[in-house]
């Protein structure tokens, strides 16, 4: 059933494209009925069941902006990343490491240079790729223990290291490679006990220092939108430096961060003014990270 809804959802997302036509779910159901599947349709028990099964909410006002979340949040944090400004320097990757003290093999953002296909001269298109904090995050859906979840307050997808059992189902479930398992490896500066080894990670304001067998070792980790830099009200502040580390360092000033709920935020303005794409739009994950081309 989930599959049907997917198809229908896709149609709604690309209303302008006639390939699937304007077949609404009702049409689809009628169609099924006609071919003798009335009982099946009845068994579906309507939208409620469909919605329960599907990761992508089925009901939305006609013509509604697919980017508009269905859940009302206090903030809706996201990024607009300008690929024309990105020079592929990877300062964002290193800044995130420095901020979150991630171990080898864990990089909350990485810079891709071929994700959108190559050109005749193999000219790269750089794009930094943090977690997209999807509106419909498949990673959250698959977690058997609810250790990873989307915060209703601001849409940030987090991991509770104390609850996570390390099954890595969520890694398989993320279509964007935004999740990494912490295998417990350490950089030499940490492994060999230099003064830096004692510096804890501010992640989630938990300030954990690395210790064998202790979380987050054995857990899945991911970009947090540097949530530890929020204030008590859940706000960021660039002037105070409480701003995602990758965006703060970006040499091309390509990473715009902000609240999509605030019409005056830089990210909202950019979405209004420029054309943006999201990766794998067809999966209905509804990412909160957009790319300007």
């Amino acid at each position: 059933m989930a599959k049907l809804v997917q198809i229908e959802k896709k149609a709604r997302h690309s209303a302008a494209e006639p390939e699937i036509g304007t077949m609404t779910r009702r049409d689809l159901l009628t169609h099924l009925t006609k071919i003798g599947a009335a009982s099946l349709a009845a068994a579906m028990g309507g939208d409620a069941v469909m919605e329960m099964l599907s990761q992508t909410p089925a009901v939305a006002a006609p013509g509604a902006d697919p980017a508009e979340p269905l859940i009302k949040r206090k903030y809706r944090y996201g990024m607009v990343i300008d690929t024309r400004r990105c020079v592929g320097c990877k300062a964002c990757v290193v800044a995130c490491k420095a901020e979150n003290k991630t171990p080898p093999g864990v990089a909350y953002t990485v810079v891709l240079d071929g994700a959108l296909g190559n050109r005749p001269d193999d000219k790269p298109l750089f794009m930094t790729k943090p977690c997209f904090h999807c509106e419909n995050p498949p990673c959250v859906d698959v977690c058997p223990v609810g250790a990873t979840f989307k915060r209703s307050q601001d849409g940030i997808v987090v991991v509770d290291y104390d609850r996570c059992i390390g099954c890595r189902y969520c890694i398989t479930g993320c279509p964007y490679g935004a999740r990494y398992f912490d295998f417990g490896e350490n950089y030499p500066a940490v492994a060999e006990g230099t003064p830096y080894a004692g510096v804890p990670s501010p992640e989630y304001n938990q300030f954990r220092t690395r210790a064998e067998g202790k979380s987050p070792i054995g857990n899945v980790r991911k970009c947090t939108f540097c949530v530890h830099l929020q204030d008590a009200e859940g706000r960021y502040n660039k002037a105070e430096g409480r701003w995602p580390a990758c965006a703060k360092t970006c040499t091309g000033h390509a990473i715009h961060f902000g609240d999509f709920n605030d019409p005056e935020s830089e990210v909202s303005r950019l979405l209004r003014e420029r054309q943006a794409i999201r990766l794998k739009e067809e999966l209905g994950t509804n990412p909160n990270v957009y790319y300007l081309l």
């Binding site: 223990v145 059992i165 099954c167 189902y169």
Partner: peptide, 26 residues
């Protein structure tokens, strides 16, 4: 086998006490 595959295998009981029903695994 699924137990030894867990990053934190000692927390296996979390699947019983914190079930998340949108997960097939749960």
């Amino acid at each position: 086998f699924i137990l030894i595959d867990l990053g934190h295998w000692t927390r296996f009981y979390h699947v019983i006490i914190y079930p998340q029903w949108r997960s097939v695994l749960a």
